[in-house]
Design a protein around this nucleic acid. Sequence first.
RNA 1: GAGCCGUUAGCUCAGCUUGGUAGAGCAACUGACUUUUAAUCAGUGGGUCACAGGUUCGAAUCCUGUACGGCUCACCA
Length: 487
Amino acid sequence: MDNDQFEHRKEKLNELRSLGINPFANGYKPDTLAGGLISKFGETPANELESRNEDYSLAGRVVGLRDFGKSIFFHIADRSGKMQGYLKTDVVGEDSLKFFKKFVDLGDFIGIRGNLFKTRTGELTVNVKEFKLLTKTLHPLPEKWHGLKDVEARYRQRYLDLISNPEIREIFLTRSRIIKLIRMFLDQRDYIEVETPILHPIAGGAAARPFETHHNALGMDLYLRIAPELYLKRLVIGGLERVYEIGRTFRNEGVSTQHNPEFTMIEFYQAYATYEDLMDLIEELICLLAHEIKGSLVFEYGGSEIDMTRPWKRINIIEHLEKTLGKEVLSDDAKLFEKARSLGVDHKGIRGKAIVETFELLTGEELRNPAFVYGFPLDVSPLARKNEADADITDRFELYIFGREIANAFSELNDPIDQKERFLSQLDLKLKGEEEVHEMDEDFVTALEHGMPPTAGAGIGIDRLVMLFTNSPSIREVIFFPHLRPE
RNA sequence: GAGCCGUUAGCUCAGCUUGGUAGAGCAACUGACUUUUAAUCAGUGGGUCACAGGUUCGAAUCCUGUACGGCUCACCA
């Protein structure tokens, strides 16, 4: 950490203090943003700018510095963009220029005030009349041309990544816009946003390994939620007919380009809707995002094209397998298990698992453009409503885009007796060797016994959605601080 | 968890094949320069070559192990 540049800057800091100048000054109030000035005056002719002769004050980090002896050009960056400043002896005086040259380094924050002019090359520039050092920086910034490339440093010191790689900032601005648009979309449809517990006594609502924690005063173990589902449905029971929650969810599983131990999902529930209604709703929502973010329903991701033109494909899992494997395989468990095994599926004698995982292995290109996959078997869908024509499957679908699961939704099971049996049958799966099953939640069953209106609900992985719309190859690119091992 | 690849100055990278006292650009420092914008010009300093062992007269370079990271696979959303 300690290098000559760090030492130089510390010396400057001490010298400033001995001069009675606070190197971490407070209270400077800029009246303008760089981006605002550029959009307002970027096209204004030079002579008109001169005749206006209005002063503006800006503040920001010094991100470029060119010293010409008796004058200095620099750029400062604020949240809106960059602005060039020009400092010359004629205007600020010799002492002030010397001070700047001696004490202002790349990376420092300064406030500047002056009128606007255009340089020979036409760049809008502040003719600095006065400036103030606001924050001294002790470390040099990453290299100006190549930025910060080292992936590990980018994640561990994300602030440096954000300073030196403008495209990273754009990714996170887009992330923020996407979440805002989703809120707007649901709010317009009379949904309310709610918050439910993150600390759960029973890790329910999904089949995943939870993080465990402990409450000292209550003397009880708790789990970080693996899904908000069961709490949101309790709210529907309570009469909140349209609810959604956007929030962090935690799963104690592997880390990859698609998985972070904590990730953001949205779940929403709508009374009197069916899973088919949610297909339409999700289609509409994601197309809105594509339109707002990409300006088109056809855009590039990972070097290939994604076409979101509606209507989206709807693929029945069973029919798809019957077509690719033959009807006889689906009608005979022994044949199905053997086929699944031969493809490398560890189905543990669970029919639903064999079907779903075999399906996933056998699909490819057809799941690149958005596709609703439906017809999920009952035993792998313990919270979903039974299909009225076929008791072996549920009214559930998953949305795939670019071969990735983006959303999972279903008509909710609201029969408490059936729900209890489904929980119990999850125990059978556990006995067959399935490690991750849905836990029995008696309290939730009691809630259902008080009556949940017919309802459909969905969960969407926000991080994956953001990846799609920012053309990011890894989930780590859309999460500010992805989990890494300690250095 | 397994396989492959990577780790050299504050940053971006050469050097490793074929072992012989560590290189460039940016950044820093000194100086010149009043419209530059990757400013330019002259000069200077800066390294536990990730870490630990081994081979060798001699290791950034070859070998082994460890740590961290990336990609692929497995579990999963």
